[in-house]
């Protein structure tokens, strides 16, 4: 896909169709140039901590936002969230949970771990595009994030 460097949006999604739809939604809204998709939690953590296959990536160049699915192979979304939000540096990266689950416990757990937003993926793609546009506008353009050094 695209370069692992200068990634603005990291999408953690094991379902390729969902990932593609998300990317399409961002692109449709002209929100991001560099979107990178990882398929599971382990890969997501490797990417952020610049290890494994992402060794050559500069760790300091953190994505602007992370879209995190909860149901993931190997390390699930909540575990990834917990790891990131427990890290004093990485916790500054906004994490938006984007999931099919309306389960209350997932919502509660996510917020208690420090998630920045929680979005349920609508089946209706138009609504999905609308939702992605809204979160992109906010987190990428309006939100003034602290610089990660």
């Amino acid at each position: 896909m695209s370069s692992i460097h200068n990634v603005e949006i990291l999408i953690v999604e094991d379902t390729a169709a969902d990932a593609e739809m998300a990317v399409r939604a961002f692109k449709k809204n002209n929100l991001a140039n560099n979107i990178y998709v990882v398929g599971d939690g382990e890969e997501a953590l490797d990417f952020i901590y610049a290890r494994g296959q992402f060794e050559e990536r500069a760790e300091q160049a953190a994505p602007k936002i992370i879209l995190l699915d909860l149901k993931l192979p190997k390390v699930d979304g909540l575990e990834v969230l917990r790891t990131l939000k427990a890290d004093p540096v990485k916790k500054l990266i906004p994490v938006i949970v984007l999931t099919s689950s309306r389960e209350e416990r997932d919502i509660v757990e996510s917020y208690s771990l420090g998630v920045n937003s929680y979005i349920v993926k609508p089946v209706d793609f138009d609504k999905f595009v609308e939702a992605v546009r809204n979160l992109g506008l906010y987190w990428l353009l309006l939100n003034q994030a602290p610089s990660l050094k």
Binding site: A17, D18, M21, L70, S100, S101, R102, V123, D124
Partner: peptide
Amino acid sequence: SHDLRSPLRAIDGFSG
């Protein structure tokens, strides 16, 4: 809730 809906979303999305 999680997995059954993904294909549906894909059906709808890709139809779109």
